[in-house]
Each structure stands twice: as structure tokens, then as C-alpha cells.
Design a protein around this nucleic acid. Sequence first.
DNA 1: TTAGATGCAAAGGGTTTGCAACGTC
DNA 2: GACGTTGCAAACCCTTTGCATCTAA
Lengths: 148, 148
Amino acid sequence: MSIKEDEFINALRKRGYRATRQRLTILKALRGSSTHPTAEELYNMVKPQIPNISLGTVYRSLELFERLGLLQKLSLGKSPCRYNGNPKMHYHAICLSCGRVFDVDEPVPNDLGRRFSEKTGFKITGYKLEFYGYCKECLSKSRKPEVR
Amino acid sequence: MSIKEDEFINALRKRGYRATRQRLTILKALRGSSTHPTAEELYNMVKPQIPNISLGTVYRSLELFERLGLLQKLSLGKSPCRYNGNPKMHYHAICLSCGRVFDVDEPVPNDLGRRFSEKTGFKITGYKLEFYGYCKECLSKSRKPEVR
DNA sequence: TTAGATGCAAAGGGTTTGCAACGTC
DNA sequence: GACGTTGCAAACCCTTTGCATCTAA
């Protein structure tokens, strides 16, 4: 865990960013969470350790982490964005009816996007795969399922 | 084209929604556009034909179309959401530096998500695959590329 | 006829931002 | 000491919503 922390600190310094207590604490909270917390949830998770941290700092850190490829940002319908700091890439399935986010544990085609990258010179640092549809519960409840 | 329009009208009526001029016009504008317009861009595209249409109606229609699986909504960083009405599924590659959206014309693994669906009873109506990274131009310009 | 849809405009709220103070290097 | 970062709170602006009116069925 501390080895990873060093890696993170180096990754920041290498690019001229500072390894502040706020950033370290936020990333640790994100990594330690198996859910996909919102910015506000992270704010509350971090507050016991840094009581006067501000929500703005959380947003600024998350934006930086995204640019550094350290997390996945999930923009769901109306609800606030959720952040996935799990280094293991995985898919999500999002229910269009209740809005819940499900993890999908399926193998990832490992050459996904390689051809595009070679053809265009686009450097892929990450990807996001989201399935949309309706979860079991909503399907059984809905009187008018909007399913193709 | 008119056949497709009939299909759309039926899809709406079947579920108790009305086939209004606004909805038909908005969907046609979206289908006829190869870019991924924002709600406001669609609003301006439709305005010549329905001068007193409101932005709220555009948003409400787009939200309905999404629930019906007729479009793909793309939530990009800070910019407003973009809507992809191209019936042919495709991927996108989003540059984290300049924010541009590139279409990826690569074959889609056709059984993606099938296992998850069978296992969990989740009914998949669509999916979204986005690559993140840095486009050629930004890579060559950037003095401090934030690339892993 | 009547229930769903629209137009309008105001409200909403997640996210961003300016600036002075602070902390890292 | 210099400059990147934070805290605070106000501003932003995309998106949603309430309500009277309209219209598709």
C-alpha cells in the first residue's frame, strides 16, 4: 500500500504537481472504497481526517486524477457523477429505470481499441464501457417497460 | 425514411406516448446529423421548422428517446451533453486534453454483455464504449503530457 | 373528450472559479 | 522564496420543472 503511495507521489511530482495531504487522502479513500462514491461522499469520507477540507478541493483533485488516468468518472443520468478508483478495469451496467450501477465481472477483450490507436495515433489511456438497460427488479415491477 | 418514421411512430404509440411534430422533427434532425449535437444545437436545427419550440421540449424529447433506446447520450467533461442518434453502434474516443470526440469505426464484439445478461437477468438495451486518452495533435503540442 | 405534450420562464443543484492565505519543494 | 494548492463562498450554466395552454388520439 505504501509502495503504491510512493508511485502516486512520483507520478504527481514528475509532472509538476504537488503531493499534498488532501490529494493523498482523497485517492486513498477512493481506492479503499468498493462502491463508486460521488464527490460529496468522498468529501464526507475524508472529512474526519482533514476536518476543514473543502468540497472544491475534492472536485479539483478528482479532475486531476481523471486527467492522470487514475480513475474513471461515471456520468449517470440526473444523479451526480460517480468516481471509480478501482485500478482493475471493469464494466458497469446502469439501470435506466432506478439508476443503480452494477459491476460487470466479465473478461475484457484485451486488444480493444488497439487498431484504432495504431491507425490514428490516438494514445489510449483508459476506457469506459457501460451497458444500459433495465435490472431484474425494475423489469418485474414496470407496467410499461421501455425495452426495445 | 418514411418507413422508419412509421416505425418510430408505432414505437411511441405502443407505449402510450404521442407522436408529436416536435418529437418527429427532433429525431429526424438527430438522425440526419453525423456530428453529435448538443441539446442546444438540436434546438437551433429544429427552430426553422418549428419557430416557437422550446429548449425544454428538446430536453424532454431527448430524455424520452434515451429511455426508448433510440439514442446514445455522451457526457463529456465540463461541456454539455452530446447526443448520438446514429443507429449503427459505434465507439468514441475522447481527448482528455482538447475535449474533441472522435468516432471509432471498429467492429463491435457482438456478444458483449450477453453472459452478464444471462447471469443477472439485466435486460441490456444499449451500451456505450468510450476510449480516453490524447489525440495526435495534443500529444505533439503538449509540453507536459499527462499520459500514463 | 381527455390525458399526454408543449411553451415559457424560473428554479435547481452539481460543479466550477476567483482570490487571499497556505504549504510544498 | 516561489509557485502550486487550498478554503471559502459566490457564480455558473446546463438541465429540470410547475403550470396554464394546447393537441394527439
